[in-house]
Write a protein that binds this DNA or RNA. Structure first.
Lengths: 206, 206
DNA sequence: TCCTCCATGTTTACAGGGAAAACTTTTCTG
DNA sequence: CAGAAAAGTTTTCCCTGTAAACATGGAGGA
């Protein structure tokens, strides 16, 4: 409502603007209870405008979740970059990146795994989730190939690992891993328990 | 709406009736997106009646969650009853009971761990959740005392265990542990990975 | 016994919200 | 340059959560 050029009738990229607003609100409230009307309001358009870009509110939420999975995947990949020595270290780094992501964006993380982001309702969301999951799978495969992880069903290990990492993320996010209760680095400790289960044999102190 | 006696003005136990209706709807839809008005409708009272028993919708949801925790605790205790031999077997039994509970009542389970059942907002809910969590803690303690589990920080093990069990429950509930993908008994397999991490030494095939 | 109080219901009222429909303004395209 | 499609806006509908005011009937004291 100013500058030299006044806002044109067409927003330019309302699709993206709505997503950004919604992401901001999600980050601020840590909940997706916000109303679509409020998103529109803050974006400076009428309350019906969003419906030109998203079938309904859930469609917007699914898009947010999809972006979340993409970001999470990137965060995990980035954590791997430094070329860590062992499979074990790599795995731990990726897991910690996931948990850090959850702690940094709890609202988004929760949305990603909530029923309101129904993966069956959106192939793109499903695909993004699977791709991120794939990072974990790849690490397990590498671990098995270089002989550091026990050679049992990859998918069983993946289930265990994923469950562990996701569970830890939830606990950490909710502040249920307080230092007094659970030691100095509970995430590391819990991951060590997991890694001991995955590993070929050695039980050295990481 | 008939029988010989017509419903009196006072319902008798509307509090309980509302809970029952809501639990039924939760089980039917696997979501707590139902409206309070619909709950009232199905219970056969006016849409404002519930407010005499619950401050708001969330209060009802918290009560449902509390009941869920009580039931989950009972399910786990029951699973322990047969007097299983080793700590390991007991632990696995309790974990499986938890996962079975989640698969049987996915809506309730999800509600219990959702932000809509804010434990900070209701001491009774918080207490119930902690009591259920305590079952796990007790099993770990027993395991350490009889020397079958490694004697590291109980709370670290608890975090790892809880994360694992909860994570598996979520995956199982969402049907993401399909047999083709993950072997015949993925839960058992994943728990074995965990138990191997917890255990003192032996890596026998359970 | 009867009267009055209070918990428990009901009706009414209101401020939003989600979503559809109909209308308007740009932009794109043949 | 016409006209269709895209992207906004306004209007409208029905629904929800929740508060407030009113009604009812059972329990306890005069």
């Amino acid at each position: 409502m100013s500058d030299t050029k006044q806002r044109p009738y067409h927003h330019g990229d309302l699709h993206r603007a709505l997503i950004d607003t919604a992401l901001a609100m999600l980050a601020a409230d840590q909940t997706w209870a916000f109303t679509l009307r409020e998103v529109a309001r803050r974006t400076g358009v009428s309350h019906a405008a969003p419906y030109k870009h998203f079938r309904d509110k859930e469609a917007l939420l699914r898009e947010l979740a999809r972006i979340g999975f993409v970001r999470l995947g990137q965060a995990m990949e980035t954590a791997l970059f430094p070329g860590l020595p062992s499979s074990r270290e790599k795995f731990v780094a990726a897991a910690q990146a996931c948990i850090a992501f959850a702690c940094h964006s709890p609202g988004l993380y929760r949305l990603m795994f909530s029923a309101d982001a129904d993966k069956a309702a959106d192939p793109r969301l499903h695909e993004a989730a699977m791709a991120t999951f794939g990072v974990l799978l790849r690490l397990l495969q590498e671990g098995q190939q270089d002989g550091r992880f026990r050679a049992v069903s990859i998918t069983a290990q993946a289930a265990a690992s994923w469950a562990q990492v996701h569970g830890l993320a939830m606990l950490a996010m909710n502040g249920q891993l307080l230092e007094e209760k659970v030691g100095p680095d509970p995430v590391r400790a819990a991951l060590d328990v997991l890694m001991d289960g995955l590993s070929q044999s050695s039980r050295k102190g990481h």
